[in-house]
């Protein structure tokens, strides 16, 4: 489900079926890595659309968490932990963060929830057909990961 009124209406009526929250982590930077940050954000945004379509009935796709890449690590981790505790409190059993920013992989041990890191692919040069195919392949990989996590409990 997306963060739109129509989907949230459904969510409120079927809360017991929606036990997974996904928070895309979208970096913003104006430094020398600006282009990289843009392509990470672009890729994850497109990917999350596909991911939401696949698992519409069980996951809530939150609007992306946008952060400045220059922010200190402690601050970012604190923010993510805030998200996590709020989501847990709201009854979500599985909390995933999707991102292309590899910094999150090194920080993974310092906060709760599952980080799904995917290398961002240069989709801007592709036509929409091959772009969709690539995104779908990526989502297919995630499909197994999600199903496995769901099976764990």
């Amino acid at each position: 489900m997306n963060w739109v009124s129509k989907d949230i209406e459904v969510y409120l009526g079927a809360k017991e079926y929606v036990d997974t929250a996904v928070l895309p982590l979208l970096p913003v930077s104006f430094g020398p890595d600006m282009k990289q940050a843009v392509s990470m954000t672009e890729f994850i945004t497109l990917l999350s659309i596909q991911l939401e379509r696949q698992f519409k009935g069980r996951l809530l796709m939150l609007p992306g968490y946008t952060y400045l890449k220059q922010n200190s690590e402690d601050k970012l981790i604190e923010e993510i932990n805030n998200w996590y505790s709020e989501l847990v409190q709201q009854g979500f059993k599985h909390i995933f963060y999707v991102t292309s920013d590899s910094d999150w992989r090194t920080r993974e041990a310092k906060f709760d929830g599952n980080v799904i890191w995917l290398p961002s692919l240069p989709l801007e040069n592709l036509d929409s057909n091959s772009r969709n195919t690539i995104l779908e392949d990526q989502v297919k990989q995630l499909l197994n990961l999600f199903v496995q996590k769901w099976k764990e409990n």
Binding site: M1, V10, A14, Y17, V18, R53, Q54, F55, K56, G57, R58, L143, F146, V147
Partner: peptide, 26 residues
Amino acid sequence: VCKHLGCTVAWNTDDANPDHFFCPCH
């Protein structure tokens, strides 16, 4: 589109139930 909550179903993806459309969500 699954009639339950709208996930995407696929053909023959669940080993326990071959030759069925299966929704991975629920």
